[in-house]
Nucleic acid binder design. Sequence first.
DNA 1: GTCTATAGCTGGATAGAC
DNA 2: GTCTATCCAGCTATAGAC
Lengths: 215, 215
Amino acid sequence: MSKSNREPTTDWREARRRSAREAIVGAAWDLVHEEGLAALSLRDLAGRAGITTPTVYAYFDSKNAIYDAMFGRAATEFADWMTQPQEAAEPTAVLVSHARRFVEFCTSDVARYQLLFQRTIPNFEPSAESYEPAVRALDTARAYLALAEVTQPKHLDLWTALINGLVDQQVSNDPGGERWTRLLEEAVAMFLAHARTAPAVQGPRSKPRDRGARR
Amino acid sequence: MSKSNREPTTDWREARRRSAREAIVGAAWDLVHEEGLAALSLRDLAGRAGITTPTVYAYFDSKNAIYDAMFGRAATEFADWMTQPQEAAEPTAVLVSHARRFVEFCTSDVARYQLLFQRTIPNFEPSAESYEPAVRALDTARAYLALAEVTQPKHLDLWTALINGLVDQQVSNDPGGERWTRLLEEAVAMFLAHARTAPAVQGPRSKPRDRGARR
DNA sequence: GTCTATAGCTGGATAGAC
DNA sequence: GTCTATCCAGCTATAGAC
């Protein structure tokens, strides 16, 4: 950051350093894919990366810093994957495709899903920079929903709950299967039938409705 | 089990033994509520229970056996809570109340939710006996859905995904708040509007539809 | 930057006296 | 059954030579 380019050599070194960091993060993901997210240890990581434990500390301040770098890579993959251009044009098809991408992203790598979307590592919270790409992806969902005439914030929340609920049940109760993910198109249809017909904004009505009709 | 009542003293001892086990499990839950589910250690547990580590092994074979006992207690609480008699009679109201109970159960104790419904403890899987009460609760949901004329198995799956998705988003992204749980009644209405009008069974149609309409 | 060596700690689990 | 004492394995992290 500070004292950036007094010499051009600085860039080489920075590049090599970043490359080495990336290699360590890659080894960390390899290990986690085989042993599970919670089974990451610096010993194993160093062995996998062909270095020793102290060398790891030459690139990362702590174990949580490694988790953060892993989170950052996963978040970037997520944003890239979710913002790829859509083939379909019709809003419903776009939403189905978008949700399908999310499902595939999550179910194809459960450890990545756990790190990104569940808070399962004790004492770890992603830094703001690592988190930023995930926000971008959520903006895409918001835009696609708007194309389908779904604009209320609460409906974006309902959307994320619905799609994420399918994924969560899938990975928790039928890992590797499709018991819940096959319901995705039906779920999107259900959601759109509801959100499209809902009143655009909670108007200045005195009460939402009479209580008898709700219960 | 075997050699049960050769002496009446046996019952006393069994009762005291079970009582001591329950006390340890209670201390384990206290500790987990304060430190987090993954932070359970036998040292801390023994200290909390006023005993020493070896004594814990007089009642449980391993740490996972303690998790299993914790799981069993949580599953029983869950079944008791979810099968309490309903005040409402109208099917929709019953379903809303049932789902509300689920949400309250989960959000009121996140550690319990994690142990029961997410697989976050490595190398731990609940025994069949500990798991049994949870199945009973799911049967209740099935029955309530049937009262609302929702009988297809896939709709039970969609139901669990939807309600659990709300809970998951709530505890993951807005712990202590109500950003997602407040959408529960709307979610139930959305679900019923869909599941009630859906054809009862996937008929012997040749193709779901022409492909152009889908994408 | 990378290594050897190790500190310092915490974990689950056990031996053996009482 | 309960204790004291301890084992042994694993972990993160650091010191210091090169």
